[in-house]
Design a protein around this nucleic acid. Sequence first.
DNA 1: TACTTATTCATACATACGTATGAATATCAA
DNA 2: TTGATATTCATACGTATGTATGAATAAGTA
Lengths: 203, 203
Amino acid sequence: MNIKRDVPERLLAVAADLFAREGFDTVSVRKITSRAKANLGAVTYHFGSKEELFHAVIDRIGVPFSHRFISIAAGAGTPLDRICGIVTMVLTEPNLPAPTLILRALATDRPLPPPLRELMQRNLATIAGLIREGQSNGSIREGEPNLLALSVMAQPFLLRMAFRIPRDIVGVDRSDPATQRAVVQHVVTTITRSLATHPERRS
Amino acid sequence: MNIKRDVPERLLAVAADLFAREGFDTVSVRKITSRAKANLGAVTYHFGSKEELFHAVIDRIGVPFSHRFISIAAGAGTPLDRICGIVTMVLTEPNLPAPTLILRALATDRPLPPPLRELMQRNLATIAGLIREGQSNGSIREGEPNLLALSVMAQPFLLRMAFRIPRDIVGVDRSDPATQRAVVQHVVTTITRSLATHPERRS
DNA sequence: TACTTATTCATACATACGTATGAATATCAA
DNA sequence: TTGATATTCATACGTATGTATGAATAAGTA
């Protein structure tokens, strides 16, 4: 009976959670292995090094994250609808370590880990593609697509993180689900106004 | 002759630069003191601990940062003009460690250092105040002021950091000053569209 | 079964960290 | 100059880090 052939899997899961929550430097290999109920040497044995584990974590997190982008982008509705769908997903999905990892990596001088580079590249390209689609049928205003994509994604990324901050700073209490819906509505409205050629005729 | 009575000052300056660039955990006391040409014990002696030095750094960085917010907010022009002025400042000011520190603190589970809390609170309040002012004279659309303020500031904060990323990811090369002007113009346009009740009559 | 490979495990190593200590030196008022 | 205080300095302490090592065990194959 293969009771535990899943050590690498457990390490990935625990490390994903810890790296997203506390950052690469702050989390020690000992902390990861002990929570994963694995031996201290397991990281070196299965991944080669702590950094390679980190890269594997990014892949593990990033692949489904990009898939969600792509599947929403390939769905129904106007390009703007689909952009708003992605934004809503980023804002409301309960467990979403990718934005945290990306933001933290951006806020450092160190070079981006290659898998994170690729993750950002893929997802920005997805948004920029939708923007181009909207521009070519006249529903989205002119402007450099990559720049517009950055402006659009900045909001759900930052708002998502800001909500862990107490109410007296951001002035909004995320623990209330009605408030959360209001926040989503707010961001969708803001993005629609900033992108649509005719924002007044929104649904 | 008082050749060097400025050790605390030098420590603050070096630490501000390093903390903003690499983060609190990554920067060692030894690195700070050696770059500041001070003794290893200087941090403990003058500030008590590395963490207290960090808090002093936030104060040192945050005070002028908030002053710039306030002085632009108190200046001439419509509320929206002044918001765009602040955004432009955040986007173009050459040395501005505060956004980096704030973003990195947001992207962590650890509680915000109190001085950073206060810094965010002050600056968000400044923006929210301008938004309320615009709402009361009908030039800025309805919406929760704190939420609108977050949406507005998200863009310059994130775009500023994204520009250290190679061109092939963000699709924009910040080293070209003309491009930088275009980015500012882009963000101003985007914010105007998302905030103004009549964005079409922009200057 | 015996043999080979894969994995686990305890432990060791070298290094880096933040802080403490106490002597040495500088600064400044009297 | 003297004496008190403030600051610098080299060094030590205890702890934590990532990784390496080699023996012990498990799994898989013949």
